[in-house]
Simulated scan of single mutants.
Amino acid sequence: MNNEDISTSDDADHSAAICGESYSAFINTLHLSLKPKTYFEIGTLNGDTLRLANAASVAVDPYFRIDGDVVGRKPSCMLFQQSSDHFFASHNTSQLFGAPIDLAFLDGMHLFEFLLRDFMNTEKHCRKNSIILLHDCLPPGFFMTVRDPSDPLLAKSRFAQWWTGDVWKVIPVLRSYRPDLSITMFGCPPTGLVSITNLDPASQTLDRAYAEILDRFSSKDIDREAYDNYWTTLSIEKSSEYSKAHHMATKFWL
């Protein structure tokens, strides 16, 4: 792909499918409706999503930029300023909470192998009906999926302020290797929100297949054909249809 021959008009535009309640509003409704007792987060940035939780919370980020009160009414709030890989290597989340994770939000490094590992490591500390949320897996534009945010292609994106990287690949990985999971896509602006439940903390399937997965899905180059094919497989639910507690109860329970 020659960047000099590419213009903004060559980008994809699936923004019509990404409309309704924002991802943060959807997460807030989940907290209010389900009242999780434990909340785990990777990728906290300034603390906007962490602030939504009233549960005992653990947050992981290599560099926190929290700009306000994130403790609120939480009974406990633990912050770990390190990469998620280092966190999981040195801490046991279930022991920190004294219980499994009820709700997790994964929004760390925007490369698919990082998000895949974060999912694998988080699931081990969940129960079957826990909920793991993945951010940025419904990128409405193709150019925002570059693996390097300094790639000149990103500057030609229709959505120039957003960089999702290639974390969308985690969805076809999970569909292929873990068909037992219950995966739902929500059209939450700006880049979607994916929920995963029917978890199996004892599963070793992804661990055993990890090298094979990297071989199949890793690439230094972005793949327009794979991205376009991915979008043809998606069934996206409207986030606005889950704005009330009784709507959430049709999909999730804790």
Rank of each mutant, 00 (worst) to 15 (best):
P179G: 08
M120N: 08
S182L: 14
S24T: 13
G43C: 12
N46W: 09
D136H: 07
M185G: 04
P140L: 05
D228P: 03
S150D: 11
W253I: 07
D85Y: 09
H110S: 01
S239E: 09
L254R: 08
I196K: 04
T164R: 07
M144F: 14
C188K: 02
P100T: 09
H135F: 01
F105K: 05
V170S: 02
D221I: 13
I66Q: 02
I18P: 03
S218K: 12
F119P: 02
N46M: 11
K156G: 06
D221V: 10
S218H: 12
L79D: 00
D223Y: 14
R51A: 13
V70S: 01
K35P: 04
D151M: 07
Y230A: 04
L30E: 05
D180I: 03
T197W: 00
S203N: 06
F217W: 10
Y63V: 09
A17M: 13
D69E: 10
V70F: 09
R216W: 02
Y23H: 12
W162Y: 15
R73G: 01
L254V: 07
V60P: 01
M120D: 01
D136P: 04
S182N: 15
I6K: 07
F252L: 05
E212I: 08
A202D: 02
E113Q: 15
R208N: 07
S83V: 08
P149G: 06
G141R: 03
T205D: 09
S9K: 12
A155F: 11
K74C: 06
T197A: 04
P152Y: 13
D223C: 15
N198V: 04
I171G: 02
A89T: 11
L79P: 05
P75K: 00
D85E: 14
K35M: 01
C137A: 00
Y227Q: 03
Q95D: 12
G165F: 07
F26I: 06
K251V: 15
E123Y: 08
G68E: 07
I66W: 05
A53C: 06
V167E: 00
S157L: 05
L34I: 07
G165H: 10
D10G: 09
Y39G: 06
D10N: 15
F142R: 09
D10P: 08
L138W: 05
S195N: 06
D48K: 13
Y227C: 04
F252V: 06
